[in-house]
């Protein structure tokens, strides 16, 4: 499946007039200020901006880890801003995958078991889980490392395990929060090529926060935040080709 994102594709993520404030009264902090953002199926979006600009808040709201203080969030056409904790957990389980800067693998747990984790919560039988987890590890190029735990893997390999974990549940969106932040340049580019491949070949929508221009260059679209608002939203001019 080759994704050709554009206005023709239906919006997958639609934030309208979303604000998020912390605290109240004098100490109120407005992390996100009346923001609109539409991300369509199959897009690869890089999100940039200084810390405190609202990009992490946006990611948390998109990832259903946080709720907007006001505004609407339509996920795949469904209003989700008012869902309770467990309903949001169910949506994360079935439609979202997360990749973090710090990898966030379970310690003292094998790569295979880490990748199995989302499937456990889907209630999948064990044999099928193992089969799928193996396939996901194969996809990220970690054949033969199934039994290794985090301490036995390099940073790049750990991030591959995390990506395998994000994609094993066949999500519609992978949310990556500075996925290359802890990696050297060589490994960073490997990880980015992997994400690009998942976007292109599997049609998985990817939203990624980054601080580096050359990492953002792997995306198709660049959204820049400043002071809780979107300052710029444009196609990536010089895209690093797949």
């Amino acid at each position: 499946m080759v994704a050709t994102p554009g206005p023709s594709r239906p919006p997958l993520i639609e934030l309208s007039d979303v604000s998020r404030t912390y605290g109240s009264g004098e100490t109120e902090v407005r992390a996100l200020d009346h923001t609109d953002l539409i991300i369509r199926q199959g897009e690869f979006v890089a999100v940039m901006g200084p810390s405190g600009s609202g990009k992490s808040t946006t990611m948390n709201i998109i990832g259903l880890l946080d709720r907007p203080t006001s505004g609407r969030y339509l996920f795949n056409g469904v209003e989700v801003q008012d869902l309770d904790r467990d309903r949001r957990a169910l949506l994360r389980r079935h439609f979202l995958g997360f990749v973090f800067q710090g990898f966030n693998l379970l310690p003292r747990t094998s790569a295979l078991e880490n990748v199995e984790l989302p499937l456990i919560y889907k209630g999948m039988p064990r044999a099928e889980r193992i089969e799928r987890a193996r396939a996901a590890l194969h996809k990220v190029g970690l054949d033969g490392r199934e039994g290794h735990d985090a301490s036995q893997l390099s940073g790049g390999q750990q991030q591959r395990v995390a990506i395998a974990r994000a994609l094993v549940g066949e999500p519609m969106v992978i949310l990556a929060d500075e996925p290359t932040g802890n990696l050297d340049s060589h490994r960073s580019h490997e990880i980015m090529r992997l994400l690009q491949q998942l976007n292109r070949e599997d049609g998985i929508t990817i939203v990624m926060v980054t601080h580096e221009d050359d990492i953002a260059a792997y995306a198709r679209r660049l959204v820049s935040f400043a002071d809780g608002r979107i300052r710029a939203d444009a196609p990536v001019p010089e895209r690093t080709p797949a």
């Binding site: 904790r85 389980r93 984790l117």
Partner: peptide, 16 residues
């Protein structure tokens, strides 16, 4: 705590 965060992120309900 971080492990619990990971479990919640991948879709664990409170009950689980």
């Amino acid at each position: 705590t971080r492990e619990i965060g990971i479990r919640l992120a991948v879709g664990a309900e409170s009950r689980q």
